[in-house]
Simulated scan of single mutants.
Amino acid sequence: MDEHTETAKPLGRNERILDAGALRALAHPLRVQIYDILSQYGPQTASSLANLTGESSGATSYHLRALAKHDLIREVDGRGTARERWWERPVGGVSFANPEAMKTPSGRAATQVVMTEFLGRRHQQLMQYVARGMQSEPEDWQEGSLISTATARLTSEQTQELAAKMQALLDETVGRYRDQRGEGVRPVSMHVDVFPLSEEGHLR
């Protein structure tokens, strides 16, 4: 499993900050879906992605090439044939927050599309887990799962410290287990959301 971290802002880690061209290339619902599948489940072909997305292999092949042009994905060395190419998402963190891209309307629009699609997919996966019944999972997986929300009153410095600690824990876990294979191993999604609430408590 490739290391897989997407962030909404640079955190000073060794990660790639997507430039405006890469953001625009990724700013398509199916491309976000393909990119995320490669991140979560490892290398795929256009055919296997077609089966997973419900699209044609011609469509997935086209979008794979578009992502590859901006080095968002790459062919797997030594695997596949001329007719059946395997694709993977390179190891390493990725940040969607590019200050230069955010200075232009097209850059802001592309960033918004990418973030909306990724967050929508994350929410959909969570709701699927809830809908299929958390109790349907084996007991050991139930005990290892966590859906938790907490609120505290913090300063900006304390919030930065908390975010850094949580990110460091995610980085350590992904770095240690990203290539793990074997019986009982499954993809596990890990979410961290740290952000200030409106003082008025209004939802906008």
Results as ranks from 00 to 15, higher is better:
residue 113 V to R: 14
residue 4 H to R: 07
residue 71 D to M: 00
residue 52 L to V: 04
residue 171 D to K: 02
residue 143 E to R: 13
residue 47 S to F: 08
residue 155 T to E: 04
residue 111 T to P: 00
residue 114 V to S: 01
residue 191 H to P: 00
residue 169 L to K: 10
residue 1 M to F: 09
residue 82 A to G: 13
residue 204 R to P: 01
residue 161 E to G: 04
residue 79 R to P: 04
residue 73 I to C: 04
residue 93 G to D: 12
residue 56 S to G: 14
residue 119 L to P: 09
residue 69 K to R: 14
residue 113 V to L: 09
residue 42 G to T: 01
residue 203 L to R: 11
residue 83 R to E: 08
residue 152 A to D: 08
residue 170 L to C: 05
residue 92 G to E: 07
residue 108 R to L: 05
residue 81 T to K: 07
residue 54 G to Y: 15
residue 176 R to L: 00
residue 131 A to C: 04
residue 86 W to D: 01
residue 182 G to D: 12
residue 190 M to I: 15
residue 139 E to R: 12
residue 137 E to A: 08
residue 95 S to A: 06
residue 33 Q to N: 11
residue 109 A to C: 01
residue 23 L to A: 06
residue 24 R to Y: 05
residue 169 L to G: 03
residue 5 T to M: 00
residue 5 T to S: 02
residue 131 A to P: 04
residue 38 L to S: 12
residue 67 L to R: 13
residue 89 R to E: 05
residue 197 L to F: 14
residue 129 Y to G: 01
residue 89 R to L: 00
residue 134 M to C: 07
residue 107 G to R: 06
residue 51 N to G: 11
residue 79 R to H: 14
residue 191 H to V: 12
residue 95 S to H: 05
residue 179 D to A: 04
residue 102 M to K: 14
residue 84 E to L: 05
residue 52 L to I: 06
residue 155 T to N: 05
residue 49 L to A: 02
residue 183 E to C: 00
residue 48 S to T: 15
residue 69 K to P: 04
residue 50 A to M: 03
residue 149 T to Y: 02
residue 197 L to R: 12
residue 83 R to D: 08
residue 53 T to L: 03
residue 184 G to W: 13
residue 119 L to G: 11
residue 173 T to R: 13
residue 186 R to S: 08
residue 104 T to Y: 03
residue 42 G to A: 01
residue 199 E to S: 03
residue 133 G to F: 09
residue 173 T to P: 00
residue 144 G to D: 11
residue 195 F to S: 03
residue 135 Q to I: 06
residue 181 R to P: 00
residue 40 Q to K: 13
residue 54 G to P: 13
residue 182 G to R: 12
residue 116 T to H: 10
residue 127 M to N: 08
residue 192 V to D: 09
residue 76 V to D: 07
residue 184 G to V: 11
residue 144 G to V: 05
residue 57 S to Y: 15
residue 168 A to W: 04
residue 204 R to L: 04
